[in-house]
């Protein structure tokens, strides 16, 4: 199995558990509070990450990209919550935002010169549609699927 597949499956497992915990936590606290406390979870890992990483090989450009990625990630979550607070139905807004990999693919093809094969395009299309379908609210569920 290709290395990227192994790591991708690991990400899917972690985020899948995250999704379950999100369902559980929103039974008790508001979305705004979840956004605050879940970032505390990120901070929990920080000492370990800092202890195992050397930052002296990073240039200003690297730091800027990592930081901007954090801002983009946070804004994605924030705008989804803002959408829900402004009248969006979760069954519509969440699947709509789940289409975000389409933009990532588009940017990667346009700016990074990636060229998926025809069969891979089919797999990409199926994955994006599957993600949107699975993000639809189940009959009895009232939660927000946050990506991260």
């Amino acid at each position: 199995m290709a290395e990227w597949v192994t790591f991708s499956i690991a990400a899917v497992v972690c985020w899948g558990i995250m999704g379950l915990l999100q369902k559980l936590t929103t039974n008790y606290i508001s979305a705004d509070s979840v956004l605050i406390w879940d970032r505390v979870g990120y901070l929990v890992l920080l000492p370990w990450l800092l202890g195992t990483s050397h930052l002296n090989n990073m240039g200003p450009g690297d730091i800027l990209i990592g930081t901007l990625d954090g801002i983009a990630n946070g804004l994605g979550a924030w705008f989804l919550y803002a959408s829900l607070e402004n009248g969006a139905k979760a069954s519509v807004a969440v699947p709509l935002t789940a289409l975000y990999p389409l933009l990532t693919v588009l940017l990667a093809v346009l700016f990074l010169g990636e060229k998926p094969r025809p069969l891979q395009w089919l797999g990409i299309a199926l994955a994006v549609v599957a993600g949107a379908l699975m993000s639809r609210e189940a009959p009895a569920a009232k939660h927000v699927d946050e990506k991260l």
């Binding site: 899917v12 497992v13 985020w15 899948g16 990999p101 990532t104 994955a127 993600g131």
Partner: peptide
Amino acid sequence: PVTSLYPAL
């Protein structure tokens, strides 16, 4: 696209 399939789990 592959990592966006996490809702399956």
